[in-house]
């Protein structure tokens, strides 16, 4: 048996060649019919209160494992807002219908080991801000370990078996068919909790503006957070500048129109501009069967 080649610790040319092969797997997985028309509405959100809250909470608990960042406040604000706009917490199915998820699971795109991957914060609307922060830190560090392990295993296979590269395009289809045929796979698929709404923050990389492209079968909406900017405003008749967070909401144009998206974005803005009231407090659990009901 041929011994496995040792993977070079740094990313060299040979390793990059392997990466392109792996990229092909995803490229073949995306087809034209998966695209759907999406529009985007954008707002500038003021961050003064969120900044004060973040600093206060970090002073109370300086543990790096539970440090609160803007991302966590944004996640919490989005989860709170989605409780009142359940249409955006859904996905389109193969039968041309929309499936509204019963849980609000916020997916975050994070940069781990130079590769974009996702972590999912389940039931983010039922967690406190501190819990969101702790869970997020834990998930990122776990993903870093597991991803490194998985990628090194894939690298081994790609380097030792050239035929594997040639057949890589077939994996998504084979996986789909096997999943349909396997009872266990179907149960696992139903039980798995993919993020029901995506929050991505290219602003951490300095991106000032971009447009997200949504694909079939994933999510109905995506919140993009861009780099913080200085915007002009009038204070006492004089021109001043304030720090704002440009935020865009991409949504499926077939499911809703601009006002519904604007209302969701307005609610996210309300949550973010008054985080002490909406995000920092204890989570109120509506009693089942009570007259008031849930959100």
């Amino acid at each position: 048996m041929t011994p496995l080649k040792k993977i070079p610790p740094s990313i060299g040319a040979d390793r990059l060649a392997g990466w392109t092969d792996k990229r092909m797997l995803y490229i073949h997985g995306f087809q034209h019919y998966m695209w759907y028309p999406n529009c985007c509405v954008q707002k500038n959100i003021e961050l003064t209160e969120a900044d004060i809250l973040r600093k206060e909470m970090n002073r109370e608990d300086p543990d790096p494992g539970s440090r609160v960042t803007f991302n966590h406040i944004i996640n919490k604000a989005v989860a709170n807002a989605l409780r009142h706009h359940i249409l955006f917490n859904s996905k389109r199915t193969w039968r041309d219908t929309y499936l509204v998820y019963p849980h609000i699971d916020i997916a975050n795109v994070v940069d781990v080991e130079g590769m974009a991957t996702q972590i999912v914060i389940p039931d983010a609307d039922k967690l406190t801000l501190r819990q969101v922060a702790q869970l997020s830190h834990r998930l990122v560090s776990t993903r870093r370990v597991t991803l490194r392990h998985r990628m090194s295993r894939l690298d081994n296979i790609f380097q030792t078996l050239p035929l594997f590269n040639k057949l890589a395009w077939a994996f998504p289809f084979v996986n789909r068919v096997l999943r349909d045929y396997s009872h266990k796979g179907a149960i696992e698929h139903l039980e798995s909790r993919p993020g029901s709404f995506l929050v991505t923050n290219p602003g951490t990389l300095g991106v000032q503006d971009c447009k997200a492209m949504l694909f079939f079968g994933f999510r109905m909406g995506c919140l993009r957070v861009m780099a913080i900017e200085q915007k002009a405003q009038i204070v006492d008749g004089k021109l001043g500048f304030k720090k704002v967070l440009p935020t865009g909401l991409d949504y499926d144009q077939r499911i809703c129109d601009a006002p519904a998206a604007a209302r969701l974005l307005n609610e996210i803005q309300r949550n973010l501009e008054d985080p002490r009231r909406y995000c920092a407090g204890p989570v109120d659990e509506p009693e089942i069967g009570s007259d008031e009901g849930g959100a």
């Binding site: 028309p37 999406n38 529009c39 985007c40 509405v41 954008q42 707002k43 500038n44 503006d209 447009k211 440009p246 865009g248 991409d250 144009q253 077939r254 601009a258 006002p259 604007a262 974005l265 307005n266």
Partner: peptide, 17 residues
């Protein structure tokens, strides 16, 4: 002609169908 000025939307990127 779509009017978003009253909804305080400051930017828009639209796809056409």
């Amino acid at each position: 002609i779509l009017d978003l000025s009253e909804l305080e939307i400051c930017d828009w990127k639209g796809g056409l169908v």
